[in-house]
Amino acid sequence: MDKVHEEVKNIKEVRKASKVDGPHDIVAIVETEAMGEIREALMDKIRNIEGVKKTTTNLIIS
């Protein structure tokens, strides 16, 4: 989990990544200019990190 956490933190769109307790191991806040870029950050970057088995996306709408 430490290796995955470090790799997630190093993605340019990731504003914050924290190891957490509960049903998920890591929570990351990803910020992009356009909605399409969120998909790219998830599909091309986070989901391709060795050790990542599943992601869950929740959007913050402000």
Results as ranks from 00 to 15, higher is better:
28 A>P: 02
25 D>R: 00
30 V>S: 01
47 R>W: 06
26 I>W: 04
48 N>S: 03
18 S>R: 13
58 N>K: 03
13 E>S: 14
62 S>W: 11
14 V>Y: 07
38 I>M: 11
29 I>L: 10
26 I>L: 03
40 E>Y: 15
3 K>F: 13
5 H>S: 02
6 E>N: 09
2 D>I: 15
37 E>Y: 00
49 I>Y: 04
29 I>Q: 01
50 E>D: 14
53 K>R: 13
19 K>R: 15
25 D>Q: 01
48 N>G: 14
28 A>N: 02
35 M>T: 06
21 D>I: 12
47 R>D: 05
3 K>N: 12
20 V>E: 10
39 R>S: 15
23 P>Q: 13
29 I>V: 02
32 T>R: 00
46 I>M: 04
37 E>M: 12
25 D>V: 03
53 K>P: 00
24 H>L: 15
30 V>G: 01
61 I>M: 15
47 R>F: 06
34 A>L: 09
37 E>V: 08
58 N>M: 15
9 K>L: 02
39 R>D: 15
12 K>M: 08
32 T>I: 10
25 D>F: 03
54 K>P: 04
43 M>N: 13
1 M>W: 07
47 R>H: 06
42 L>Q: 10
21 D>P: 05
35 M>E: 08
60 I>G: 09
8 V>Y: 01
15 R>D: 07
14 V>A: 03
27 V>E: 01
53 K>I: 10
30 V>L: 09
